[in-house]
Design a protein around this nucleic acid. Structure first.
Lengths: 206, 206
DNA sequence: CAGGCAACGAGACGGACCGTCTCGTTGCGT
DNA sequence: ACGCAACGAGACGGTCCGTCTCGTTGCCTG
């Protein structure tokens, strides 16, 4: 029995030009009018593309935006340096973490990143399938850098050996993430510095 | 100059019956078909109510759901005990925090709470005005309980006096929140226990 | 207790987008 | 050079939006 789900489009004939135009249009519209008011029809017309071209290659507007944002991130990563980036190791864990988190604070304020990443995060909260893809392709690779740096710190004796690095990183990354996502508090360099100090030395008296 | 924004509906003539029916319909639909597929028309027809009655009292479906969920939370809080709830103080901070967080883990799995609170959190990520109301009316009052308990711990010498309790609570609350919101990891009692231990004693060797 | 008036349930209305479906047209692979 | 599938364009029925009328109902005031 022949299935007519979809005639399985031919990737080799795909128009690179249209793909790029769709990415650009999607990112621009989300930044300009917001995610809820961004429509497939709007993306298509702005990209100078037929709606069917979008529906042929993507299943939803969230799907389009996720790919567009991944592409943007990869471009930015290539422009900034080599792909396998890592957190610097000066031998001073606290200082290294504070530096990276300060940079993250600045990045969270960059409008070009803020609109699409908020939109994707919001969609992911309510759409588990997309949320897991967002995490696997974007968030987890970033978190892995902290795992690596924390493991190095364990070998250097700066972190207790029985600590699980994947959980440890959440002590300073998740508070920042929550303040940003949910507007539960201001985001400053002083704040992230404090998080690192609290996490490394604990709340209890020593 | 007479403004015709809206004729300012008369609260005293408002139908309590309709209000309750709308809350129930909104919560039920979000749980049954999900937030994106929940529509104002759907809520109205399920509640046996005219659309205009919804538009007269609320400005958006997110607004309806926030009020409905606040109402549900207040009911649940009254049913469970007196309103000014607080975190128990047995003199063992770690044990008290672990208990509360375990209860929170269980609550996060309750389907009746999960669907609407996810929907509101997602909307809040992308809609700052609603996000701030969500935080102010629902999240922050809960977090304040941790602030109180941590202050008591400071007076008892269980927490260093220079620690800011509002930030300290984020070390164990935010990681749980992020795992739940973004599916960045499994949520278990063992996990939250570990968070409390890490937060209290720090990552660095003592 | 009667009357008036605003909120009510119901649903018609134009408009925006949805996702699907044709059209010719274009441009890549054979 | 040819053929075929992806392309831009847009028509189509459908859903939901937010606004607007209808009578009807039920609560405050006199």
């Amino acid at each position: 029995m022949a299935q007519n789900q979809s005639p399985a489009p031919d990737t080799s004939r795909r128009s690179e030009r249209s793909r790029r135009a769709i990415y650009d249009a999607a990112l621009a519209l989300v930044a300009e009018v917001g995610y809820p008011k961004t429509t497939i029809e709007g993306i298509a017309s702005r990209a100078g593309v037929g709606k069917q071209t979008i529906y042929r290659w993507w299943s939803s507007k969230a799907d389009v935006l996720l790919e567009a944002f991944l592409d943007l991130s990869n471009q930015a990563a290539e422009a900034a340096g080599q792909a396998p980036y890592s957190i610097p190791d000066t031998g001073d864990l606290a200082a290294d973490l504070k530096n990276v988190l300060r940079a993250t604070v600045d990045e969270l304020r960059d409008p070009a990143f803020e609109a699409p990443s908020r939109a994707l995060a919001a969609e992911g909260v309510v759409n588990e399938e997309l949320g897991r893809r967002f995490v696997a392709q974007l968030l987890e690779p970033q978190l892995q850098l902290y795992v690596d740096r924390l493991r190095a710190a364990q070998e250097a004796g700066e972190v207790r050996p029985d600590i699980d690095p994947r959980i440890a990183l959440e002590l300073f990354v998740s508070p920042l993430a929550q303040r940003w996502l949910q507007y539960t508090g201001p985001i400053t360099h002083a704040y992230t510095d404090t998080l690192v100090d609290y996490a490394l030395h604990g709340l209890a008296p020593r």
